[in-house]
Design a protein around this nucleic acid. Sequence first.
RNA 1: GGCGGUGUAGCUCAGCUGGUUAGAGCACACGGCUCAUAUCCGUGUUGUCCGGGGUUCGAGUCCCUGCACCGCCA
Length: 510
Amino acid sequence: MSRTFYVTTPIYYVNDVPHIGHAYTTLAADVIARYKRLKGNEVFFLTGTDEHGQKVEKAANAAGETPLELADRVVKRFQALWEKLDVSYTDFIRTTQERHKNGVSHLFAQVLAQGDIYLGEYEDWYCTPCETFWTETQLIDYKCPDCNRPTEKLKEESYFFRMSKYQEQLLAHIEANPDFIQPKSKRNEIIAFVKEGLRDLSISRTSFKWGIPVPGNERHVIYVWFDALANYITALGYPDQSGNFGKFWPVDAHLIGKDILRFHAVYWPTFLMAAGLPLPRKVFAHGWWTVEGQKMSKSLQNVVEPNMLIDKYGADAVRYFLLREVPFGLDGDFSHTALVHRINSDLANDLGNLLNRSTAMINKYFDGIVQTPGPLSALDQAYRAKTEAMVTQVDAHLDELAFSKALQAIWEVISAGNKYIDESAPWALAKDPAQHERLGTIMYCSLESQRIIYHLLAAFMPKTATKALSYLSWDAPPTEAGLKWGGLATGTKITKAEPLFPRIEEGTRD
RNA sequence: GGCGGUGUAGCUCAGCUGGUUAGAGCACACGGCUCAUAUCCGUGUUGUCCGGGGUUCGAGUCCCUGCACCGCCA
């Protein structure tokens, strides 16, 4: 009965340190993974690191260490960050692991054996000092874009993948599956790109050593993207069908940044076609974050360091902000004022305050004990219906990875919850003993709606949800059954809540 | 240069197959409540819906054109 769900982030290149962009993709994957688990799916959530390639080799040399030593160091930083952000990944793959190298070799050998990989010559502009090939369009005045020194046209022996062979098949698949590549604007770009014609792809290098050797020809190292993309199946144990690979492939969603869409929407599917494997169900390219209106870059020194944000605002606030502020798929701007604003108005005023006022009242009026609700008035029923509708809406939005819409739908009910209290005015009823049952019913509806809200929010803000639910004496982990109205039992002891998100005074920022 | 997209209140954006007085959130102003983290609720202001032309009984919504910005490709 249990369905499976497989979601991935890209594997992050160890030549870079974690920044807000990495955190964004990973958090999105975490939210969907947590939600699918709550819905009863068996979830496989994969993230990891890409550790091969010339840049890593050179950076390691420069630092006087081996590439693997460099990778070990950076991997720890990623893993520490994910822990800090409460990222619930199932597996963390490193491309230097044996399981991965074996899988990649197998994939390469198989495609080679069937004739879709052939040995040829790769010709492009080469910068000798940098030991790097550039395409003509990358050159600046025929000079190396990295070091500005002259380049020369050079030939290198290389293995090629017959990508051209799969052009029509890929196009047909994209057109037959409207949700395969998302968002739609990106899908159009890929269709246009494929229609212009796919050329065979160079998938090996002889100019450096730090990578997986081509089976049967150790002078060649497998091209970094062929190596990296395969992580999505090697982590499942490919080519062994008996375990996770048979169980979880094809993947339900590859979440990626828009800069690597072509690799995931063109290269990867054609590799899979050649290998006779099913294609991913969905590839979703999200947007970029600018920072205070400016493009993030090392030279501007405005790269947002997630650790600093978490220390300052807390993991859940960061998680909420990133997924609420911008529709998944569009670019967004990160700013401290926007973040503080979201914390104060959405989290402190709307969400937190609702929990506070309701838990305070039930303690004041009923010593914190949940009463058996009487008949629901029209007002109560409308509120309940809105809460129930939210559960369906959130489910639909999350199916489309529309995180921000899902949160909006939740916040509509939070707003309705504040309004509900206002309109039913419990403090007035409390003065009239004859209204005792009515008062208990209102408390019930308010808290029950919130209990369901925190079940949904558990995917987005796990710590906050756990804490809020504990005030409602709900200590079990959130489940799908918990999304149904009526879960709050008569006699439950409600604790008066401490503020979940204290307001942040504007202007106290550094 | 080719293909695609965008241009709607101060800000960020919704507005599907054209149909009465163009919406939401935030911000701002005023009013109300007091259970609550000076929180919550209500009301209200601002829009040549980028410019121009056209189709139509009727267009933010379709067509043409101009401008601006963005993306992909070259």
